[in-house]
Design a protein around this nucleic acid. Structure first.
Lengths: 211, 211
DNA sequence: ATGATATCGATAACATATTATCGATATCAT
DNA sequence: ATGATATCGATAATATGTTATCGATATCAT
């Protein structure tokens, strides 16, 4: 059994950003302390689960008062690595790629897409939201020189594996994959699939059950 | 204990589109039969898990031969409701909204975004990818008249709850939420959060563990 | 035909995640 | 000060999801 002190379950980790959003809202409303009960209520979670998650951040709550909002925000932000921002590159400047490049919100999540790549000459050497688009042939040189660790894949399914390989060759350690394919990678590389189809499956199932 | 014959776990459901993609690839390569072992190998899953998932589709495999690819494709497609397409509306025609409107791929997932809404007059009454953008004030009338059941929310966080309420009032049963907030909804309504921040959390954690 | 083998499908063991229970403690009202 | 109460945090119970085991069966080679 691996009881790493630093290990945190993926489900728990995925909940953290939710807590953070919620806490920011509350802080904005002038709230300084909040109980796990209330959080659970408003986020439709089990209070015990919330307490467990929050305990994981190292913040300790006070009976009758709850947790210090600022302290929670600080620790969750730290835990999620939103402070020390990660630089990333994006490959595939289609509609979706463009949307992600234009999205200002990633900064607050500690992600900073610094450059993009595409094979289409007509898009290259432009800027989108201040980020320059290079031809794919430049990727290895740039990624390794800039020591980029995250690659975002927004190319068509059929090209995704090749791009993935290229990214890993260039030194990328984690891949955010928007292409609907399973990517083959070495053990030490993480692939996070952004899985629209899977979400749709759940929506569709819900509608089926309603009928 | 609820042992509904029709119930399928969410994790399993989320895996289904993966199988489907993979099976299409294989079919394309001329493969007619495939074993759970091979699928598991290539998708980095446990073979038993694959068998369980496939069993859930109703297809029965043959020892030594494996499962019939066409049959699997058919049944999974059915299970996921990709045949009887669901019509949806999208609210919030910003960068992301536009990208989703332009994405042709949803059709094959049984999702059809038919119209979009926004409050910005300057975007209204145009078409994006053949889908007309209406002013938000028209939403209730249109959604209820067209009997739309799915709403896609791509508005800023602060407006999301209001839009959500509006959609539900108009008769929507399932919501695909891209705004980073927790939406409060009645029990019978499903919210599927597309959770970029959560995915980023996992990426970031991986990088932290590498260091 | 017969035996070897790949594969299935069912059951059981295990791991993980969620929920329930309960004693301890800080705050608040009296 | 004192007692009532909300809340925490630890431990236990449950549920869910994953993995292992194993007998049964269809195919293939001899």
């Amino acid at each position: 059994m691996r009881t790493n002190i630093d290990s945190i379950s993926k489900p728990a980790l995925r909940r953290m950003p939710h807590y953070l959003n919620y806490l920011y809202e509350k802080k904005n409303d002038g709230v300084t302390h909040i109980s796990s009960t209330v959080i659970a209520e408003e986020l439709d979670l089990n209070p015990v689960k919330v307490r467990k998650d929050l305990a994981r951040t190292g913040v300790i709550g006070k009976p009758k008062t709850g947790f210090d909002v600022d302290e929670l925000i600080l620790n969750i932000t730290e835990l999620l690595g939103y402070n020390n921002s990660h630089e990333a590159v994006l490959v595939g400047v289609g509609q979706l790629g463009r949307a992600l490049l234009s999205y200002k919100g990633f900064a607050s999540y500690g992600l900073n897409i610094v450059v993009a790549f595409d094979t289409d000459e007509s898009i290259c050497n432009r800027k989108i939201n201040g980020k320059k688009v290079f031809h794919l042939s430049k990727i290895k040189e740039l990624v390794s020189r800039l020591k980029i660790r995250i690659g975002v894949i927004t190319v068509p399914a059929k090209n995704a594996q090749d791009i993935c390989d290229l990214l890993i060759e260039s030194g990328v350690l984690a891949i955010w994959n928007f292409a609907p394919v399973h990517l083959k990678v070495p053990d030490n590389i993480l692939v996070q699939n952004e899985n629209m189809a899977a979400s749709l499956a759940i929506l569709s199932q819900h509608l089926k059950e309603k009928r």
